[in-house]
């Protein structure tokens, strides 16, 4: 899980152009969206959907689950671990 979390941090930094942030700066349990975390927005959510589909072959079937899945790097990693074939 730790390895996947670190990989995800690197992918988020690269795909979302988080040029001023290093992997160590990202708290795996902090919220990705809104205040108090990375402060990502709806365009970033689309980019994360693409990371899941392209890099892990995972499609989110139920959009209502998005809020829980995208809460933090840790919740993303847990979802990938549970759904990757």
């Amino acid at each position: 899980m730790e390895e996947l979390i670190e990989k995800l941090k690197g992918e988020l930094i690269a795909e979302l152009n988080l040029e001023e942030i290093k992997p160590a700066d990202i708290d795996a349990e902090a919220p990705l969206f809104g205040d108090g975390g990375l402060g990502l927005d709806s365009i970033d959510a689309l980019e994360i959907i693409l990371i899941l589909e392209r890099n892990y072959g995972i499609k989110i079937d139920n959009p209502a689950q998005g809020k829980e899945i995208f809460y933090s790097v840790k919740t993303l990693a847990e979802y990938i671990t549970a759904h990757q074939k």
Binding site: E15, N17, I43, L46, E47, L50, E53, R54
Partner: peptide, 13 residues
């Protein structure tokens, strides 16, 4: 690269 699927929104916008 993505065969006309799964295109990133940022460069388009």
């Amino acid at each position: 690269v993505n065969n006309e699927r799964l295109l990133n929104p940022t460069p388009f916008i």
